[in-house]
Every structure is written in C-alpha cells, then in structure tokens.
Nucleic acid binder design. Structure first.
Lengths: 343, 343
DNA sequence: TTGAAAGCGATACCAT
DNA sequence: ATGGTATCGCTTTCAA
C-alpha cells in the first residue's frame, strides 16, 4: 500500500523526476513540465533546473517510451553486417534517421530465414518503432510475418508485386544490361558471367538479365559460373572458368561478376594467371562498393544504388511513421555504370 | 479516475496481458505467470496460452524493461561504421552478445568528440544496459563523462593508466615492432612509414613504435609520411614519398603502412609507378582486415586483434553487468603478423 | 494456485 | 501557474 509514497526519496539509485521534484520542493508534474520546457514560473523553473543539475538528472527513456508509445529506434535487419553493400546501406540509413533524432538498432540475421521471421514476430514488437529489412531470400513465412507485423516494415529487395508492404528495390536486370551493353560497345564479344547462387533473389535476377541483355545484342553467354557472393567463391569460380578455356583462343574477353567481391576474386585469379586486365579480359563488378577503388586496376562496376536504396527505405519508413494510413509504396532505384580501369 | 479500469478491453490496438487475461477469464497476474512459465494449474495455463495464441500476443519489451530495469541492449559507439576494423569488431561483439540474448545498438559518432561525450551523458542513460566505445581521441571531457556514466562502459583503445574504467587495448608498439623485425629479417634496410595523424592515439603510438623498433635494429627511418587513415590519403602520401626519392637509388625498399587502407593506397601508387611488390618494395599493412585478401598481391599485415578486442570488450561488459562490484580491468591483446604476398 | 494491487519513471489530463 | 493522479504494459509481492 504505497509505503514509498510517503517517505522522502533518499539518494537511492539514479535521479528521477521525483528526486528532482522533492529536492526543489515542487510536484513531479511541475518538475516534468519545467524539464520539458513547458510552462513554469521563472522562480519555480529556476529551482527545478538547479535541482536537476545538482543531482545530474537524465530522463529515463524507457519510461518515457512506455508513456509515449514510441522509442525513437529504427530496426535494421541485414544478413551480414560485414558485407560492404550493407555497410553502404547502413551508413545511408543511419545518416537519414539520425537527422530525425532516431537511432539504429542493428540486427544480423546471418542469412537465416527462420531468424528473420522470428525477428519480425519478436523484435518488431520489442524496441523499435519501425524496421527496415533486407532479406536475401523471401519465403512464404516472411510474407506472412510481414503481413502481421505490429510495426511498419520496409523491405529492401524484391517482393511479390501484390505484397502490401513498402518496398525499395534495385533493378538488377537493367544493371546487368548496362554492364553488358558497355562491354559490347567497347568491342567485347565473348562475355562470361560469374554469378551468385541461383536460388537467391539477386542471383536469379542477374542470370535472367544477363541472358536477355546478351540476346538483345545477338550474343550468347560465353560461359557461366556460380558460387557464393564472396571473394573466395569468385576466385574459385574464375579459376574453373580459366581452366575450362585452356587455350587462349576461346577464353572469354570479358567477365561480368555478380558483385564486387566476386569481381575482386576474379581479378585475383586473372592476374595470378598472367592475364592482363583490361587488355586481355575486361572485368565488371556490381554494387560499386569501396572495393572497386582498392583493387589495381580499379574496378568498373554497376552501381545498384545501395546507399540510395537505404536512404529511400529510411524515408519511406519515416513518412509512414508520421502517417500510418498511406497505402503501400514501391520504389525502384535505377542503376548506373561507373567506369574505372578494368574495362 | 480510472474509467478504463472498469470497462472490458475491446480489440483496441495490439494485445496486452490484459487482453489475454480478459479473454481467458483470469487475472492479469495469472496470465503473466503462465506467459512466463511460472506456475499455473494445467487447466488455467491452457486457457491462457490459447487466448495468447488467438490474439497473437507478444509482450511489450518496453514495459518489461521499465519493470526489470534493464533492456538487454548493448550500445556500441564507433567513429565510422564503414571502417573495416570496426566492422570486424562489431561482428565479434555482435556474435558474443547475441549468445546472451542481447542486442546491439550501434551509434556512429563520426569522430566527433563532443558527440561522444554527449552520448555518454545521454544515450548511456537512454536505452542501453551498458556500452562499448572506441574513441579515436581521448579527451579530458571523455574521462569526465566516463567517470559519471550511469551504466557500465568498456573502452576499446588506449586510456590513461589511472582511469578506473574497463579497458581493452591493442599493442600498437609491439605490432609495429613485429612488422619492422619481419622486414629487417627479410633483408630490408631502407624502411619508410606512412602513418595516420600524429594527434590520434594510434597514430602517435605507431610513430613511437616505428622509431624505437628501427633503433633496436640499428636503423633509422628511411622516410616518414602522414595523412588520414584512408585509402586516398595513403595513395597521396605514397606518391609524395615516391616523388621525393626520384632516383631508384634512395627509394625505400620497404614501406610500413599504419593500416590496411593506407597500405592499399600505397600499393596502388607503387603499382601505378611500375614498382614491383614485393620485389622492389615490400609492403606491410596493419589491422589485418578483409582488404588484405582483396589486393594483388595480398597484403602482409599486422593483426592488432580487432575482433579479439571486440570479443574481450563484450565479455568484460557482460561480466560487469552480472557483477558491478568488480574493480576496473585492463586487457591488452597481443599482435600477430600475418604474412602474405607483399613481403 | 489465484487475484488484487503496488510499483517501474515519465507524461498528460484534470482540477484548483 | 501548480499539484494530484491516472496511465502506458508488465512483473511481483502479498493475501486470500
């Protein structure tokens, strides 16, 4: 029966509004008001401020969140926080939401689909006002979980067209076409591709795009290899590809890598085999990450707009948090080709 | 005067314990107990669980945190979330704390000292149970703020020896010595260094280490350059260095770069100038980030244990959260040299 | 075993 | 302008 109510607050634990109010000899309501810059007579304000200062009062954000029904936190779920593409995206998102005084809660899903849906069910109702996620693969379970998520979610990546969820996507197909056209325009004809896994959304899209872009120029793939979206996989795939074309004659004169990591691996294999880049083989990566500047020669790469996608996703989410009634929106970020020294 | 208290909860907003309790026809206390797996008769438990299932109940973590006085969130403040070293550290920390069901709240300080102390005063009392920070520079203000932080903080990086704060540090000096010894042992004599800014903690330590390590082998620096800890700065500094030693005669036969980004920039400048690596000039980076594998040739690099430092910092913090009474601890992670193809 | 009620810390709505 | 108090959703005594 509220014993504490009637005993004055001795310095127990960190300061609360009550500590400040007691010290200033005012009600907690007045203390709260002054602390939030609403009303208060000069005299009372001064007393409260002095008291707050003296006890080093810092408002407890948890309590405030409970009352306000919002935390100011935005969740970001990515497969791998080390992947340069996600790093780019994270940076853009962070910058965008920091402007609104919000913070980023980052969660690595480790490309684990079960974990991702669990996240939507759990974490979505945990601490975040909204959430941005970029799943590598999208399953039925994802869609289900997304549909009943308790907070707004924006998905970066491909989603079925009828999914009623805010969605920002890259245009891989157009991106691949940019690369292919660039290679053909600069005289390459035997164009090979080193792709990621076909059962991922980006892998599948890039495969389709590659074949149709070549067909549009009256060409067929010189060769195709698959592996993970990693440097090591790119290195291994490129070695297989080089081995297959033992004679210089049927070696591809250009290779399109499905991302910059694969491209870096490929470059490594080429240089190690004494192949000159771009003289003998032109090389194009995708994602236009920082990696492109680190290699020698620097990599030509298709910018699929990771940063821009992050920025737009953040904006979509922020606007939805302002007004939950707007219908689902879909944005597509157009790719650009950034030519450097590998083509 | 508590109107709501007496009206049954109609489907308003997301389900709460009250929703579940009302639906199951039990008290919220019982509902809470069942939901947390404490007690409850089989019959009652079943009813509550069914009700929770039906309304898709997910506990509100904010409310729980307010009660429990902990959020399960760990804050991480780094200068730049894109820097590969921090990425390594983040990954290690994330993995470590995820095991304990905690999550990472990441904050980019953009190397802004004012922001960092503000963080300690504000965010530390905001949402996190504890915090790991890795400041580039440590000021008086930092130390002050650290001293009165409301939650435990672990600092990754150098701190004054008498600072009563958990602290994990790299041993830059030993790291530089490893590199220098390796270069000398492999026959290099004219060793230059491309360093970061001298007014940063790591920059200063590496400079000291470089000079003393050389002196220990009876050598003097062949040349020294400074710039930021970036690829571009490394590239520019290496160009200046090459220009200075116009004749091949007094060109350094080895360069130590203060981090891998600088090393990559340096490599770029060397290769562009037609210098063979490692034949003409050996090159050693520091931090042993993923970058070392991406370049051609791959970079020999001193591993200052970023991942290990992150892991230890996480462990220190977790143990302190368990028991706040232990005194401040200080750990130093020993460096290792990882030889690759650039030496 | 179950339920009533007291908090956690802050804000907001009332009266005064 | 100021103070009392209900409330956010949950956990946790304390009684019954």
């Amino acid at each position: 029966m509220g014993r504490k109510r009637f005993q004055s607050q001795v310095a127990t634990g960190p300061a609360t509004v009550r500590t400040v109010a007691d010290l200033a000899g005012v009600s907690i309501a007045s203390a709260s008001r002054v602390l939030n810059g609403l009303g208060g007579s000069p005299e009372l304000s001064a007393r409260v401020k002095a008291a707050a200062e003296r006890v080093g009062y810092v408002p407890n954000a948890i309590a405030r969140s409970l009352q306000a029904q919002r935390t100011g936190l935005i969740g970001l779920a990515v497969a791998d926080i080390g992947n340069p593409v996600y790093v780019q995206m994270m940076r853009a998102i962070e910058a965008e939401i920091a402007d609104c005084g919000r913070q980023l809660l980052i969660h690595a899903t480790n490309a684990n689909a079960a974990g991702e849906t669990e996240l939507l069910r759990g974490l979505a109702r945990r601490y975040v006002d909204g959430m941005i996620m970029s799943p590598l693969r999208v399953t039925e379970a994802h869609l289900n979980a997304l549909a009943k998520s308790a907070v707004p979610v924006v998905v970066v990546g491909q989603l079925p067209d009828d999914a009623p969820i805010d969605n920002v996507r890259a245009d891989s197909i157009a991106g691949v076409r940019l690369a292919v056209d660039h290679l053909v325009d600069t005289g390459r004809r035997r164009i090979a591709m080193i792709n990621g896994p076909l059962d991922t959304v980006p892998g599948a899209a890039r495969d389709t795009g590659f074949r149709s872009a070549l067909a549009a120029r009256g060409l067929a793939p010189a060769d195709v290899e698959y592996g993970d979206f990693t440097f090591e996989a790119g290195l291994a795939a490129a070695r297989r590809l080089l081995e297959r074309s033992g004679g210089t004659g049927d070696r591809p004169d250009a290779i399109l890598a499905a991302n910059d990591l694969i491209a870096a691996g490929t470059l490594h294999a080429l240089l190690a085999a004494g192949v000159r880049v771009p003289h003998d083989v032109a090389l194009v990566g995708m994602d236009n990450t920082d990696i492109t500047e680190l290699t020698f020669p620097r990599l030509t790469s298709v910018d699929l707009g990771a940063a821009e996608r992050g920025r737009r996703a953040a904006r979509l989410l922020l606007s939805r948090l302002d007004d939950g009634t707007i219908g689902p929106r879909r944005e597509t970020v157009p790719p650009t080709l950034v030519q450097r020294d590998s083509t």
